[in-house]
Design a protein around this nucleic acid. Structure first.
Length: 375
RNA sequence: GGGUAGAUGCCCGAGUGGCUAAAGGGGGCAGACUGUAAAUCUGCUGGCUAACGCCUACGCUGGUUCGAAUCCAGCUCUGCCCA
């Protein structure tokens, strides 16, 4: 059984689980650091291990363009290539189709676009996305989907969803034909629920994907500019139609409070560039909310970033971190990336512990209360 | 001592009669960032004011002009060259 549901919270929909993958077991709820180009920006794999990262992301679109999936396959796969021996999930490139919108055209066949590196015209299809991900050898491959924009009228959302479903069928067909392996070494495949802000479409999407039977289900098309309430609603509209014995993954989320809100709604997996991206821009997450380390108020502050800081970071004062950022020192980016991932990974580790103890509701409420109160 | 080039806002630097509170860059102060085209992007940056606006500003003093950072005279200082 690849996914084991160990416990379901009685007060909320939070779940404690264990996901067995070819390169190891992942405890859920889990946060997955994003390593788009086969690298979690600024961090060494040993540091990710030190942080307790259990699974990281890679990206089909980026690795396909450079250095190429065949090269990676010939060098032993993405794990070997990136020197990361724990589970990895690869995104399908569907999101890039959305974020590179100005350069692309979606057809039944797939997506034609000009790549951002040299502008040459390329075609990414569901079959090719699965082929690339198989070559990369990730533990979890995401299906190739279309992520509709926000706002998005219902007609477009329905048309887009129908296409995503047909693409899901093609992805499954490709896997059945080309990757018939089974057992523990087998790559897992997650479908992606779309449907924008429309409840009936979310339900329809979930039902259609479940009928195709995947190893897990993601909720996509969120965090694309919609208000936070819409985002929560999209999750709520999809979760009831997903099987309890399969992992659920909210793609691209979120802020620390959002993560806890989603866990409380029954989501098991998260990924987000926020902790690493804002780290490079000077923001440190703390139990009392985010801190912009470049700001003047820290100039003479001898305190560490946060009482929750990892020992590797706790020895540095806020004043020193501000200095590093102003001086343009690379260490600043590394320290905050390390810190923010520690913050996120501790957040979900705390959630797992709380679910196990039956105290998740209190854990969530206490965290959010302190995080959002202006101190 | 003679010649010559120059002195602009926190710094560098454009501007050679009105469109100039003065380009651009740096620095500074903030903000944004959610399946990473992101060590990126955006805003503000003389003073007072919520704003209209007023005041003070282009080395100093005086002058020409309806109007001067821009033209003229003298002075001060700086770089370079010659003695």
């Amino acid at each position: 059984m690849p996914f084991q549901l160990l416990k379901t919270d009685t007060q909320t929909a939070a779940r404690l689980g264990s996901l067995g993958l070819p390169h190891g077991v992942v405890e859920t709820p889990i946060f997955m650091p994003v390593g788009t180009q086969g690298s979690v920006k600024t961090l060494h794999p040993a540091e990710l291990e030190e942080l307790g990262a259990q699974i990281i992301l890679g990206n089909t679109y980026h690795l396909w363009l450079r250095p190429g999936h065949e090269l990676i396959r010939d060098l032993g796969g993405l794990h070997q290539f990136a020197n990361w021996q724990h589970p990895m999930l690869t995104d399908s490139g569907g999101f890039q189709v959305w974020s590179l919108a100005k350069l692309r055209k979606i057809t039944e066949e797939g997506v034609r676009f000009q790549n951002h590196l040299d502008g040459s015209r390329m075609l990414l299809t569901p079959e090719l996305s699965m082929e690339i991900q198989a070559a990369l050898g990730s533990d979890i491959a995401m299906l190739f989907d279309e992520c509709p924009p926000y706002p998005c009228d219902e007609t477009y959302a329905a048309t887009s969803l129908a296409l995503t479903t047909r693409w899901a069928q093609r992805c499954k067909d490709w896997v059945t034909t080309n990757e018939p392996r089974s057992g523990n070494g087998r790559q897992h495949h997650f479908g992606i629920v779309q449907g924008s802000v429309y409840a009936d479409l979310r339900e329809q999407s979930a039902r259609e994907l479940v009928a195709l039977d995947f190893d897990g289900y993601a909720i996509g098309g969120v965090s694309v500019g919609e208000p936070e309430e819409e985002m929560f609603r999209a999750i709520e509209n999809a979760v009831p139609f997903l099987p309890v014995d399969k992992p659920r993954y909210a793609m691209g989320l979120g802020t620390p409070p959002q993560i806890l809100e989603m866990i409380g709604r029954g989501v098991d997996m998260f990924d987000c560039v926020m902790p690493t991206r804002v780290a490079r821009h000077g923001v440190a997450f703390t139990l009392d909310g985010p801190l912009q380390m470049k700001n003047l108020i820290h100039a003479k502050d001898p305190r560490p970033i946060c009482e929750s800081a990892h020992p590797h970071v706790a020895g540095f004062s806020r004043a020193y971190l501000r200095h590093l950022f102003r001086a343009g020192e690379i260490l600043a980016l590394r320290l905050l990336s390390f810190h923010n991932l520690h913050f996120y990974l501790s957040l979900v580790a705390g959630a797992r512990e709380a679910i196990a103890n039956g105290t998740f509701a209190e854990y969530k409420a206490a965290f959010i209360r302190r995080y959002t109160s202006k101190s």
